[in-house]
């Protein structure tokens, strides 16, 4: 069972209350973008074995989007943070570096 703390309402939301929204921190390509860049934005995902940054929506709760850093192998959650964030907060990045010394960084 996956529990994510929703930063918008503070609830430790069960996985079944949430809707997954795929990888976070993507650069949204738009009109005028190169075909390759657009394809990468639409389809190309890193999908590493381990640390992921993901978008989640508290669908059955407050209805808001938020971001989460977690490990898809161990299901360990490193933290959740507001969707209005361009990159993972320093605290989460530091915790990650400590726990996963071989982690290559979020970008």
């Amino acid at each position: 069972m996956l529990l994510l703390n929703c930063p918008c309402c503070g609830v430790d939301a069960d996985e079944t209350e949430l809707a997954a929204g795929g990888e976070a921190h993507l650069k949204r390509e738009t009109v005028g973008a190169e075909d390759e860049a657009f394809e990468a934005y639409l389809f190309m995902r890193d999908n590493p074995r381990g640390v992921h940054f993901e978008r989640w929506r508290h669908a059955y709760g407050c209805g808001k989007w938020f971001l989460a850093a977690r490990d898809t192998v161990t299901l360990e959650v490193f933290g959740t943070y507001p969707a209005q964030t361009k990159k993972p907060p320093k605290a989460i990045e530091n915790a990650l570096k400590k726990k996963r010394p071989d982690w290559k960084g979020w970008a």
Binding site: C9, V11, D12, A13, D14, T16, E17, Y60, G61, C62
Partner: peptide
């Protein structure tokens, strides 16, 4: 799936779930 323990949910709170 909400936390319904007295510590997690008390009268005066609302739970959307």
């Amino acid at each position: 799936p909400a936390d319904l323990s007295p510590a997690g949910f008390a009268p005066g709170q609302v739970c959307r779930t």
